[in-house]
Design a protein around this nucleic acid. Structure first.
Lengths: 217, 217
DNA sequence: TTGATTCGCAACTGGTAGTTGCCATTATTG
DNA sequence: CAATAATGGCAACTACCAGTTGCGAATCAA
């Protein structure tokens, strides 16, 4: 396709990390995130990023050989804040994190990022990045549930990952797929439904048949 | 941007609906779906669709003024089969529908469609189409749950929509977002967790405070 | 059969990603 | 502080693909 894209060539060596170069890097990546939130991935123009960040287009291409790599670099810079609440009640902890996630996901930037991830799913760079971000989020959320198991809020042997997956998949689906607001009432309803099921042993690990009916088909 | 795109002009009147014209339409739309599954929306080239369906590029543009409209037309042709099982057990019904959904979603075509929907979310045509498809799916699924409520499998006053939303959001998230396989064990786990919660009254409508702790924050 | 409709063909325009050569700056290093 | 290697600005490229246009040929409907 393109010489640089094929060979991964960069003219810039990354030796100079202060002064003008530093300003260029941070300013460009900041602008990319801004543009992603504003117009999304497909409509993001490298020339626009250049002019908006007061830098020449050539300069951008010398540092990031393709639009995909440029966006990947911007994504790498973006990290969700890692606060994990510990209120003593799983319900409250989950609610706080859910609220925070919804706020992130509902913002223009959040919408732009998801669009980008879908559009660039062939890019191994973007793929690896999102996989990392997601696994980190999941890890932190699982911790909350495991603490609750230790406290006795949920039965021992509860599949913490499943609980987390069900709750947050539902919430993100509301915001991203359905593109409908996820208000506090909705968040509470989802959390309560799943926690009720888990409390009653509906999410126990290593379930070998016998108790319930076998899957049909 | 483009003359036709702006004014929505089509040279084709749609008067001839048999013979060559019919072949052209069906062959082109079939090829579009094929290509969507093969390479996704962004990489889909109208010229490729033309050559692969044995039709001239101009012919395509005269009938579908933009790539987005072409894809929207192909999407419109695609409809999921509307079978709703009624085995007498909600657990079994949900499992069957879930299996079917996973099969659809895991196919190359399914993956391509989702990517398209994300990429073309600015297109009101595509937006309206997917909204329709989704609401129809949801409607059919809600029916299953409501039948179960009538049978007494779930308590009266259960929010059927919530139950459906949580289960299928989680499944789709597995397949589309996480891009991990959703095997039968996973499907059963999700269904069992949610049904257990619902059975214990975790999904009742019109819950006014008093029973549980109030949302923090 | 006849005429309006649709299709094929080839040669366009336009926008945007990515490239290149040359010269001007500027950060680092001694 | 001077030398120099790294980097940035500029302008003029190429390449690819969406979308256009005019004309003559094929073909469907009456």
């Amino acid at each position: 396709m393109n010489a640089r894209a094929e060979q991964g060539k960069r003219r810039t060596e990354g030796v100079r990390t202060r002064g003008r170069s530093a300003r260029v890097v941070s300013e460009v990546l900041r602008t990319v995130l801004e543009e992603l939130g504003r117009v999304g991935y497909a409509a993001l123009r490298v020339e626009d990023v250049a002019s908006r960040s007061g830098v020449n287009k050539t300069t951008i291409y010398r540092r990031w050989p393709t639009k995909a790599e440029l966006v990947a670099a911007a994504l790498r810079q973006w990290t969700e804040d890692p606060e994990v609440p510990d209120t003593g009640s799983l319900r409250s902890d989950l609610f706080l994190v859910a609220q925070h996630s919804v706020a992130m996901a509902s913002s223009p930037l959040g919408q732009g990022l998801v669009q980008t991830i879908q559009a660039e799913r062939t890019s191994p760079e973007v793929e690896a990045l999102t996989r990392m971000l997601r696994s980190e989020n999941r890890r932190r959320r699982v911790v909350m549930v495991e603490r609750a198991i230790e406290r006795g809020e949920l039965p021992a042997g509860t599949d913490a990952m499943l609980v987390v997956e069900v709750i947050f998949a539902t919430i993100y689906s509301r915001v991203f797929t359905h593109r409908e607001p996820a208000d506090d009432v909705f968040l509470q309803a989802v959390i309560d439904l799943v926690l009720e099921g888990a409390r009653r042993g509906g999410a126990l690990l290593q379930r070998d048949g016998g108790s319930g009916p076998t899957p049909p088909g």
